[in-house]
Write a protein that binds this DNA or RNA. Structure first.
Lengths: 220, 220
DNA sequence: TTAAAAAATAGACAATGTTCAATTTATGCT
DNA sequence: AGCATAAATTGAACATTGTCTATTTTTTAA
């Protein structure tokens, strides 16, 4: 029982439709050339509807980008399912899937970081969850790789690893990396991730790593 | 001898003036709210002049961002001059200076990566140099830290280290890192840089690191 | 059938990037 | 000095955009 105007779509359907069209548009044009008017046009509605349904452009964009986040998580799980069972293989699959999704969904992926969210605007519970789902996947995999470790330490490390891979991926897609004449950013990111994990006792070499002054001072 | 219209400014002065005003504007408004019209207005000229002098908005923005790059390099050198003489101290100074500049010049720094440069548009020789100067500083410092190493290997590693730090800094300033509830992104970036360098024989531990299968396969 | 409520629209507004014909100004020549 | 030329600068036009509000349309409830 709802009191909508059109029988074309229920409120939920309309919401879904608008997000869907917005996502399609941002994927093909990129954030800079995205237009709310055009997105509404494609949905068969007018701009105002977006403001009615989402309350403002920012909230709309958050919804659109959250969809990308969901696709991203699914992509990661998909690739992880195909990955070999050893630690090394799963980590590689994870990093490569990160890059793979970003490459195939260039515009949508970049839009996530192009949209600067004002601290005043609050993000819907479910959209926040979509974002957290992604770090959740990495949390799980890294925890599996590290074995027995302090949970808080893993949390921080995971976020730092994400930032590491993100940096490589981001510079790659913006072309900054090409300017630096690096050919294989994904490979470099993976190499760094391995190195970092090795310093945290994953893949321990035959005789375990002695902890130097550095290792301690930097992490405290 | 030139045939300009106004005696107010020579062509070079005008160029400088426009870049200066543009830089000021982008620093106070950020990339999204930047306006070429407003920049020209502040310089005492009209929009068309920007198109005359720079040929297009993209070229203008490249010039503006290149100024930020120059400030950035200078900032790094400034901080490095104050740094202690040991390897560890200089690396820390470098990473913290990277973050420090980005924090103080939030908008200008982010604008560098917000502006997506079409591959068709070519960047002036001197502007490309401004960008390379930055990686040059890091090249020098890391080379000093690593001592005897293959030059090409250092090149790649440096770019990867920059990407690593960039990732942390970028997620920090966009607020993504806050969403992840990490308090000290700079510290985390520094920790990762130390770990990575340690895997490349900087600060070698008493008994040198045995090279595992991982280290090799990831870097080739 | 009709009144109220909700949804959707159209239109106004200020602003933007981009282009280009018209205008203004300095210069070099006579 | 005066004039023609060439360069620099402008201003206005155009299509678009985000944002807001009064108005219209449609649905539901009475």
């Amino acid at each position: 029982m709802f009191m909508g105007r059109r029988s074309d779509h229920t409120p939920d359907e309309l919401r879904e439709l608008l997000i869907s069209c917005g996502h399609e548009l941002i994927a093909e044009r990129g954030f800079a050339k995205f237009s709310a008017r055009e997105a509404a046009r494609r949905a068969g509605y007018s701009v105002g509807t977006i403001y009615n349904v989402f309350g403002g452009l920012d909230s709309y964009l958050i919804a659109v980008n959250s969809r990308t986040f969901r696709h991203w998580s699914e992509w990661l799980e998909m690739e992880l399912a195909k990955a070999p069972d050893d630690t090394e293989g799963r980590i590689e699959a994870l990093v490569r899937a990160y890059f793979g999704f970003a490459e195939v969904n260039r515009n949508a992926w970049m839009a996530i970081y192009d949209h600067r969210i004002d601290r005043s605007i609050e993000i819907a519970r479910e959209d926040e969850a979509a974002r957290e789902a992604l770090t959740g996947v990495v949390d799980r995999e890294v925890a599996a790789a590290l074995g027995a470790h302090d949970e808080q330490e893993i949390r921080r490390l995971v976020r730092s690893l994400i930032a590491t891979v993100h940096g490589h991926c981001s510079l790659w897609l913006t072309g900054s990396y090409a300017l630096m004449r690096e050919e294989d950013p994904a490979g470099q990111a993976l190499a760094r991730v391995y190195e970092i994990l090795r310093c945290h006792d994953v893949f321990p070499p035959p005789d375990s790593l002695p902890s130097t002054q550095l290792q301690k001072s930097a992490n405290e």
